[in-house]
Design a protein around this nucleic acid. Structure first.
Length: 324
DNA sequence: AAAATGGGCAACCGCGGGGGT
DNA sequence: AACCCCCGCGGTTGCCCATTT
C-alpha cells in the first residue's frame, strides 16, 4: 500500500508530479477536455496511467480548486455534514465549492478529528467517548500516583502537598467518570450503568465543579478550598442542585446530610436529572436542524438561535484551549 | 548542530457501482 | 445473465518539512 516505487511494472511513472507533467496535462485538458481518462495519457504525451492523471486533475490542477486554510465556516459545515453523512467525503465536498473530497478528508483526519478526540468526543459518533481506553490515561496516572505516594516517606511539610496531589488525581478521575456519566445519561438503555457510575461517585464522595483542574481550584481561590478541607480532614460532599443544574461541592447550604431523609429513588432521580442536564446534546439532532442551511447559524425556520451550536462551541478556540 | 519525531499533504490502492456488449 | 471496462470513492501510506530533543 501507499506510494510505491517511482514506476510500475508497465514502466508508467508514479509518485509526485513534475511541473512539466502538470503543464502537459493542463494544456491537453484545456484544449480537448479529459475525455476518456484511460486514453488521455497517451494522447497528452504523459507516461502515467489514466487514473493518476484523473487524480492529479481533480485534486490539484482543476482551475476552480480553492487552496489554503479552511475557514471557520467551512469547518462548521464539515463538522455538521459529517454528523449526518459520516465519511462520505465526496458528498461533503459538494457542499464546499472549490474543495476536493481528498482535501476535506485530509483536513478531517489531521485537524478536526484530533480536535474532537482532544475534547473527549468520539469523532465517529460525535458523542462523548465512553470506552475504557479513553479513560485509560487518567486511570494509569492515578494508579502510578497512588503507588508513588505510598512509597514516599512524607514529612509534615509535605503532607499537605501529598493530600493535595491525591485530591487532584481523584478530581481527574471523577471528571472522567462524569464524562462517561453524561453520555450514559443520554442513552436510554443504560440505567444500570448509570447506577454504577453514581455509586462510584458516592464512593469517591467528593468532586470538583465541572471545570478543569487549575491552581486556583487547588488553592481554594474561587474554587473548592481543598487544602483547607484536607487540613481539617474533611471531604467535600456531592450535592445535586438541579435548580442551577450543577454540582455544588462542599457548600453548607447544599450539603445533603444523612439526617435529611430523601429516598434512594429520589436521589437517583436527581442524579439522573443532573447527568441528563449536563450531557452534551446529540450532535445529530443539531445537525438535522442546521443542515438545511449549512453555513448560516439560523434554524430551518430562518430564526436565529440564541444558543451556539455544538459545532460552534467546538470551534471556539478559547474554549478549546481550556481543554488543551 | 544534528538527530529524532510528528504533522500535513499528495498520491496510490483496492473495491464497488454503473453502463455497455 | 454474465462479463468487461471505466470511473469514483474511501482508506492508507510515503515524502517533505517543521518542530522538538
Amino acid at each position: 500500500m501507499g506510494r510505491p516505487p517511482s514506476s510500475d511494472e508497465n514502466g508508467l511513472k508514479k509518485g509526485p508530479w513534475t511541473t512539466e507533467e502538470d503543464e502537459k496535462l493542463m494544456s491537453y485538458i484545456q484544449k480537448h477536455g479529459h475525455g476518456s481518462w484511460r486514453s488521455l495519457p497517451q494522447l497528452a504525451g504523459l507516461n502515467r496511467c489514466g487514473k493518476s492523471c484523473r487524480l492529479r486533475w481533480t485534486n490539484y490542477l482543476k482551475p476552480d480548486i480553492k487552496r489554503g486554510k479552511f475557514s471557520q465556516e467551512e469547518e462548521q459545515t464539515i463538522l455538521q455534514l459529517h454528523t449526518v453523512l459520516g465519511n462520505k467525503w465526496s458528498a461533503i465536498a459538494k457542499h464546499l465549492p472549490g474543495r476536493t473530497d481528498n482535501e476535506i478528508k485530509n483536513f478531517w483526519n489531521t485537524h478536526l478529528r484530533k480536535k474532537l478526540i482532544k475534547m473527549g468526543i468520539d469523532p465517529m459518533t460525535h458523542r462523548p467517548r465512553t470506552d475504557f481506553f479513553a479513560a485509560l490515561p487518567q486511570l494509569i496516572a492515578l494508579a502510578n500516583l497512588r503507588q508513588f505516594i505510598n512509597q514516599q516517606p512524607w514529612d509534615d511539610h509535605t503532607a499537605g502537598l501529598q493530600a493535595q496531589t491525591a485530591q487532584a488525581a481523584n478530581l481527574q478521575y471523577v471528571q472522567s467518570l462524569l464524562h462517561s456519566a453524561a453520555s450514559i445519561a443520554a442513552s436510554p438503555t443504560t440505567s444500570s450503568s448509570l447506577n454504577s457510575l453514581t455509586m462510584d461517585l458516592e464512593q469517591i464522595n467528593f468532586l470538583s465543579p465541572p471545570q478543569m483542574l487549575s491552581p486556583s481550584v487547588l488553592e481554594g481561590n474561587g474554587g473548592i478550598d481543598l487544602a483547607g478541607q484536607v487540613a481539617q480532614n474533611q471531604m467535600p460532599s456531592i450535592t445535586f442542585d438541579h435548580t442551577i443544574g450543577n454540582i455544588n461541592p462542599g457548600s453548607d447550604n447544599h450539603v445533603e446530610t444523612s439526617g435529611q431523609h430523601r429516598s434512594e429513588e429520589e436521589n437517583n432521580s436527581k442524579k439522573r436529572q443532573f447527568l441528563s442536564e449536563n450531557s452534551l446534546p446529540p450532535l445529530t439532532d443539531m445537525a438535522a436542524s442546521n443542515i438545511c442551511n449549512t453555513i448560516s447559524t439560523s434554524n430551518c425556520d430562518g430564526v436565529s438561535s440564541p444558543f451556539p451550536s455544538w459545532s460552534e462551541i467546538l470551534l471556539d478556540e478559547e474554549l478549546l484551549s481550556e481543554f488543551a
